[in-house]
């Protein structure tokens, strides 16, 4: 089986309140030198059989309709080593 990873991030121009909260908490806990934090989501999809272009296109479709909200989020799809 192979693993496909879909990373979903808010589009850069969209406010990320969670990332902002983390960024504000870091220096309070003594972790200095971090200018900004953006928080996203990672999906790991374990795919049965071989990874084909067709299969990847299917996953991109799933990422666009279910895993992400394309109005405010971008996503990337990549194949990880076989597991």
């Amino acid at each position: 089986m192979a693993r496909v990873v879909v990373d979903v991030m808010l589009k850069p121009e969209i406010l990320d309140p969670q990332g902002k909260a983390v960024a504000q908490a870091l220096p309070r806990l003594g972790y200095d030198g971090i200018a900004a934090v953006r928080q996203g989501k990672r999906f790991e999809l374990d795919v049965v059989g071989e990874i084909t272009e067709e299969r990847l296109a299917q996953i991109r479709g799933a990422a666009e309709t279910l895993l992400s909200n394309p109005v405010i989020e971008d996503f990337t799809v990549r194949v990880e080593d076989a597991i």
Binding site: K11, L15, P17, A21, V71
Partner: peptide
Amino acid sequence: PAVQVGDPFM
């Protein structure tokens, strides 16, 4: 336009 995102804690 870019969607406005709210931050209720703010």
